[in-house]
Write a protein that binds this DNA or RNA. Structure first.
Lengths: 133, 133
DNA sequence: AAGCGTTATGTCCAATGATATATAACGCTA
DNA sequence: TAGCGTTATATATCATTGGACATAACGCTT
């Protein structure tokens, strides 16, 4: 339920090394896996294709010294996925960082919010930040 | 030669409203405009096409209640661009937030860094990761 | 008047990213 | 053994983003 919403506020993307970073999307996915018990259900629950969800899991697993997500094929329920202790640890660590950042940056957030255009236009625009670097 | 500054650490993307956010790329651009005095030079200096740089400026200007960047056509130097007080204010505010976040999140960063895979494969190549998010 | 570098735009195209679709394998249950 | 839902994976298609290029206007200098 909380996964996948576009919350306002500071968004954190933790860049740990070249080509390895964890951001809100990944953590949302981890939490959705906890809630649903499978990669496919997690993906569906957050409007993400199974392929994408699976690739993200692949990446995360590869980047750390042991997997964050453990999967099983077959079985009564067809299979499933769940977080390893490391996965839980990383997800909760990220949330903690997020909360701490939101807390400590609140004054500046407030200030910036006051400088916005009244004009909440969109329509033709419809996207946010193309600058990834 | 690699002008791109992929600094490690927490990266901040301040989501102020639906469709309006400021992130590291935008602020880098603002600062490059200060340094170079023009959108085109700023773009070149950070390996960004003029078009892209100009569009970003457009967007930023539109999103706040007054422009962040002021431009001039023609003239002795052909024209140029510079930050308005609001632009300077926003850029420095963002940097401050960034610094504060980096400071306050350092312990968690340290912890996460310790969990990385030893294996830092794919060095200078660049063609390694099929997923980006 | 010509020239210059820049802003300001539009149009086209390549690269990238994400989705859709199609299988195969798996292991439990009925 | 057949069936189910899932993981795992390849391939093809669609969407979005960004870059290349082209052009005009501008206003200062020579």
């Amino acid at each position: 339920m909380k996964a996948g919403n576009k919350t306002l506020g500071p968004r954190l993307r933790v860049v740990l090394d070249t080509n390895v970073a964890i951001g809100p999307g990944q953590v949302d996915l981890l939490e959705a896996i906890v809630e649903t018990g499978s990669i496919s259900k997690a993906g569906r629950s957050m409007n993400m294709s199974y392929r994408r969800a699976w690739l993200l899991v692949q990446r995360m697993n590869a980047h750390f010294h042991s997997p964050l997500v453990e999967t099983a094929k077959g079985g009564n329920s067809g299979g499933g996925a769940r977080l390893t202790p490391l996965g839980q640890d990383i997800a909760s660590c990220y949330r903690q960082m997020e909360a701490r950042a939101a807390e400590v940056l609140e004054p500046e957030m407030e200030k910036l919010r006051g400088l916005l255009a009244r004009n909440l236009d969109d329509g033709a625009d419809g996207k946010a930040d193309p600058t990834a670097s």
